[in-house]
C-alpha cells in the first residue's frame, strides 16, 4: 500500500498488484485487470457479444414481422427438413457441452483435457457446417432459392449468417488451440467457449422458427 505525500515513493512490489502501479497493457497476469470482479477479457468479450446479440435479434425480429404478415409462411416452412435440423441441433448442443468442459478444465489448469475438449468442439462445428452444406444443396436442388419467397429469403439469410458464426466459432477455437500452446490462457478458452454457447443459443431459436413450425 502506498502512502501519499511529497517525497514518498511508490513501490510496485506490493502484493496488491494492479492497484499499486497502473496497469501496463500486456504485461500483467490477465486477471489483474478487472473491474468489480469482471476481468477485462470477459468484460470486453461480453461487450462484443452484446453487439452480436443485437445483430441476430434484429434479423429475427424482422423475420417475425414478415412471418406475421406473409400468408404463405407456414406452408413454405413445412418444406424444411426436421430430421437433418434435429441432428444439427444435437451436434451443436454436444459442442456446447464439450466447450463448457474445456472452459472448466482450462480454469482448473488441466490443459490436456481442455485442449481435447476444444478439439471436440471444433469438430462439432465442422460437422454442423458439413450437414448444413448438404442441407442447402438439397434445398437448392428442390428449387428453393433465396428469392423464392419471404420465408426462404429469411431462411437463407438467418441460417446463413448463423452458419458464418459457426464457422467463425470453429476458427476461433482453432486459433485459441494454437495460442494456448505458447501461452496457456484461461480467458482465451473461456471466450472461445462463450462464443460457441452464444452461437448455440441463437440456433435454439432458429431451429423452432424455421424448421419446427
Amino acid at each position: 500500500m502506498q502512502q501519499e505525500g511529497s517525497g514518498v515513493m511508490v513501490s510496485s512490489t506490493s502484493a496488491a498488484g494492479a492497484s499499486s502501479y497502473p496497469p501496463i497493457a500486456g504485461t500483467l497476469p490477465e486477471e489483474q485487470y478487472e473491474w468489480r470482479g469482471a476481468p477485462v477479457a470477459r468484460l470486453a468479450f461480453w461487450l462484443f457479444l452484446a453487439g452480436e446479440i443485437i445483430i441476430l435479434l434484429t434479423l429475427i425480429g424482422a423475420s417475425i414481422f414478415f412471418r406475421l404478415t406473409y400468408p404463405g409462411w407456414n406452408e413454405a416452412s413445412s418444406y424444411t427438413n426436421v430430421v437433418i435440423s434435429t441432428i444439427n441441433t444435437l451436434v451443436l448442443l454436444t459442442g456446447s457441452l464439450t466447450a463448457v468442459l474445456a472452459h472448466h478444465y482450462a480454469f482448473a489448469s488441466r490443459w490436456a483435457l481442455a485442449r481435447l475438449y476444444l478439439v471436440l468442439t471444433m469438430l462439432c462445428g465442422f460437422t454442423f457446417l458439413g450437414i448444413k452444406v448438404f442441407e442447402y444443396s438439397r434445398e437448392i436442388m428442390h428449387g428453393f432459392l433465396p428469392n423464392t419467397n419471404a420465408f426462404w429469403m429469411f431462411y437463407y439469410g438467418i441460417t446463413g449468417i448463423h452458419g458464418l458464426h459457426v464457422l467463425a466459432g470453429s476458427l476461433i477455437i482453432l486459433g485459441v488451440l494454437f495460442y494456448i500452446r505458447k501461452k496457456p490462457s484461461k480467458y482465451a478458452v473461456e471466450n472461445a467457449a462463450l462464443y460457441w454457447h452464444f452461437v448455440d443459443v441463437v440456433w435454439l431459436y432458429i431451429f423452432p422458427m424455421f424448421y419446427l413450425t
Partner: peptide, 9 residues
C-alpha cells in the same frame, strides 16, 4: 491464479 480475493474470474 493471482490470489485475487475478489474472484477475478
Amino acid at each position: 491464479a493471482g490470489g485475487s480475493a475478489k474472484g477475478g474470474g
